[in-house]
Lab assay of single mutants.
Amino acid sequence: MAAAAAAGAGPEMVRGQVFDVGPRYTNLSYIGEGAYGMVCSAYDNVNKVRVAIKKISPFEHQTYCQRTLREIKILLRFRHENIIGINDIIRAPTIEQMKDVYIVQDLMETDLYKLLKTQHLSNDHICYFLYQILRGLKYIHSANVLHRDLKPSNLLLNTTCDLKICDFGLARVADPDHDHTGFLTEYVATRWYRAPEIMLNSKGYTKSIDIWSVGCILAEMLSNRPIFPGKHYLDQLNHILGILGSPSQEDLNCIINLKARNYLLSLPHKNKVPWNRLFPNADSKALDLLDKMLTFNPHKRIEVEQALAHPYLEQYYDPSDEPIAEAPFKFDMELDDLPKEKLKELIFEETARFQPGYRS
């Protein structure tokens, strides 16, 4: 834990890192770190609560700039109880001085990944967590956004079992017609939660990839272990087919990539493993919904509104309290091709509203 900075004593240090967030945020305490930044909790002297502050230093890398800009653009436009918001952003007053960006968010005690390492969940908890994931996802999908990296560590939890989806750095506007060349190379989302079509096709992607990830998360809540822990690309596919069985001819016809289709045709026939054999203690309604989410063919996979209306979630289902976005989200430009200098300018502009004396 960093010592509390005395008023006016300059930035606090946390594990050798400068955290320049005073005077409003003090009493910093280390939480963890990701690929390009550290997260601390801090005391907000204005709202009198502890908050989470993520320090991001992305400006050396085009990919990190892209992810940072995506996350900020999306989260500043989203407003939903099951999606983490941005409360404040701290950065230098000029673009030349801006080396880091500090993002202030609600402090959540833990995440689903940490929880599943230590606790076996009751059916009631599984049901409530799944409902909140789908409630947040309904809003995301209504904005025409794909999260693309749903996994237990991106689901934040607090002691009252509130759940918030975080990390929109890989999110995209849904565009089933656009052929994202190089899709697989830039697709760094965790393999275990990846839909089979991501490994088999490169053309376009749809909201059904997020539903697949939610199915993987439900299976993990039922058993405290990942359902498809593939060691590499082909191993991942083999794990999936080992449980779902061989795809039907109709399902194979959806695979545009001939090499991928021929690979699947070359494999020995596998039978589907019954879900109640894998999860003998699970609620039968939970397994019915799991089956509809972990469907090989993305066109037959359940959609988020149908999933919310499934009998497993009937005690929570309330369409009048499951809000959607006001308007579909649009990125003005494809960020993939922009140089990091341009992305830095866009991050600077996007964060201006939090600067003292800002006038829109």
Score class of each variant (00 low, 15 high):
residue 253 N to E: 11
residue 132 Q to L: 15
residue 233 Y to L: 12
residue 166 C to R: 12
residue 355 Q to L: 15
residue 44 D to M: 12
residue 189 A to G: 07
residue 294 L to Q: 14
residue 167 D to W: 00
residue 340 K to S: 04
residue 181 T to L: 12
residue 196 P to M: 05
residue 20 D to T: 02
residue 8 G to S: 02
residue 114 K to Y: 12
residue 290 L to D: 06
residue 229 P to L: 10
residue 236 Q to D: 07
residue 251 D to H: 09
residue 137 L to V: 03
residue 47 N to E: 10
residue 245 G to V: 13
residue 57 S to Y: 15
residue 276 N to M: 02
residue 6 A to M: 13
residue 262 N to H: 11
residue 270 K to N: 15
residue 141 H to S: 12
residue 312 Y to R: 05
residue 237 L to F: 08
residue 303 E to T: 04
residue 267 L to F: 00
residue 175 D to C: 03
residue 72 I to N: 14
residue 98 M to A: 01
residue 312 Y to I: 09
residue 14 V to Q: 02
residue 203 K to E: 13
residue 10 G to C: 10
residue 285 K to I: 15
residue 345 E to Y: 10
residue 254 C to S: 15
residue 272 K to F: 04
residue 312 Y to L: 11
residue 169 G to D: 15
residue 300 K to P: 03
residue 253 N to Q: 05
residue 258 L to C: 08
residue 41 S to V: 13
residue 244 L to K: 05
residue 315 Q to G: 04
residue 39 V to W: 06
residue 13 M to F: 09
residue 2 A to M: 14
residue 6 A to W: 06
residue 287 L to H: 13
residue 136 G to I: 08
residue 129 F to G: 06
residue 121 L to D: 12
residue 93 P to D: 01
residue 165 I to H: 07
residue 278 L to Y: 07
residue 289 L to Q: 14
residue 253 N to M: 10
residue 162 D to K: 04
residue 79 R to Y: 01
residue 217 I to M: 11
residue 359 R to A: 06
residue 338 L to C: 08
residue 134 L to C: 06
residue 271 N to I: 15
residue 103 I to V: 00
residue 359 R to V: 10
residue 119 Q to D: 02
residue 212 W to A: 03
residue 308 L to G: 11
residue 231 K to V: 03
residue 251 D to C: 10
residue 292 K to V: 03
residue 33 E to F: 02
residue 62 Q to N: 13
residue 57 S to V: 11
residue 59 F to Q: 10
residue 163 L to E: 01
residue 301 R to M: 01
residue 342 K to Q: 11
residue 103 I to M: 09
residue 323 P to V: 02
residue 20 D to N: 14
residue 113 Y to G: 08
residue 327 A to K: 06
residue 216 C to P: 02
residue 118 T to K: 13
residue 320 S to Y: 13
residue 350 E to V: 14
residue 104 V to P: 08
residue 360 S to V: 08
residue 133 I to N: 15
residue 218 L to G: 07
residue 84 I to G: 01
residue 326 E to K: 14
residue 184 L to Q: 14
residue 344 K to C: 00
residue 21 V to W: 08
residue 356 P to K: 04
residue 81 E to Y: 05
residue 305 E to D: 15
residue 18 V to W: 00
residue 322 E to C: 06
residue 221 M to I: 14
residue 80 H to Y: 11
residue 223 S to W: 10
residue 311 P to M: 00
residue 167 D to Q: 08
residue 84 I to L: 00
residue 104 V to D: 14
residue 291 D to P: 06
residue 42 A to K: 07
residue 206 T to R: 07
residue 356 P to I: 05
residue 304 V to G: 15
residue 90 I to T: 02
residue 357 G to V: 15
residue 140 I to C: 02
residue 274 P to F: 00
residue 55 K to Q: 11
residue 292 K to E: 12
residue 217 I to F: 14
residue 172 R to K: 10
residue 67 R to Y: 13
